[in-house]
Amino acid sequence: MKKVYAKEEVCVGCKLCEVYCITSHSKYKDVLKAYKLDSTRPAPRIIIEEERPISFSLQCRHCDDAPCVKACITGAMQKDPETGVVTCDTDKCVGCWTCVLVCSFGAIVRDLNNKIASKCDLCAETGEPACVKNCPNEALVFTEGGI
């Protein structure tokens, strides 16, 4: 399946991916409004690791054998059998963080504001990962089969 891969050689640690991830999952699809108006502003579903000069962003790898899906105590975490995308049904999620415990990428973010597990859904709504689209340095690629 197509996944987002990071090129640490050219990630500049700007965290714009984070800004656009939040925007893409906010009810307003606009940066300004997402930040200024959205009282339930979502947490970023992307983690930027930085230890200069190295930096990269990391998000859910949508594992084939996803441990979070097996571990989720409510059934909120599911892997779509067709697309392979792992998503969290936020209506069901109770914020127990069992998924945080088992995800070996540390890719599940605790959205404490909304008390739900927050994770990359490859921007299911728009079909185009916002981080990839808005990375200023092409440090993220959305492709099949690794890079």
Binding site: E9, V10, C11, V12, G13, R52, P53, N137, E138, A139
Partner: peptide, 13 residues
Amino acid sequence: QDPNLVKRLNPEI
């Protein structure tokens, strides 16, 4: 030559 800054220029771009 600062590696933090050099990587801002992605040769691919």
